[in-house]
Design a protein around this nucleic acid. Structure first.
Length: 110
DNA sequence: GTTATGACTATGG
DNA sequence: GCCATAGCCATAA
């Protein structure tokens, strides 16, 4: 398998995790990195971030947040409206309440 | 091979 | 919970 194919595979698994998050729930970069890293033997939250930056347009990226429940300032505004639509539990600061909304991601096949 | 960078995380304040 | 610092993984120059 070429390096490029591995990147695509990694990306696809990350997208699966993002897609597995139901409406009104969110997950974290670290959780996805853990699941995909366990499957492919490599990982790291930054890799997940890189994948989202590249292929994020194809999935509900607003359901993937940082470990503290907040999003990058660049996408906070756009995500906030999606949260209001989906009924995602938000804190006053605008961050997601992970204790209520956290979803453990998973792959379609093991 | 070394350095810089990124949609990150853990820890301490 | 937010800010600063250090650590981590892969890619690009």
């Amino acid at each position: 398998m070429t390096a490029e194919e591995e990147r695509e595979l990694y990306a696809e698994l990350v997208l699966q995790c993002a897609e597995s998050v139901p409406r009104g729930r969110v997950t974290t970069y670290g959780a996805i990195a853990d699941v995909v890293g366990e499957r492919l033997g490599r990982g790291g939250p930054r890799l997940v971030g890189n994948v989202m930056a590249t292929h994020g347009a194809a999935v509900p990226w607003w359901r993937v947040v940082r470990a503290d429940g907040s999003l990058p300032p660049s996408h906070g505004e756009e995500a906030r409206q999606a949260y209001l639509e989906e009924g995602t539990p938000l804190r006053a600061s605008g961050s997601v309440d992970l204790s209520l909304a956290f979803w453990q991601p998973g792959l379609r096949a093991e």
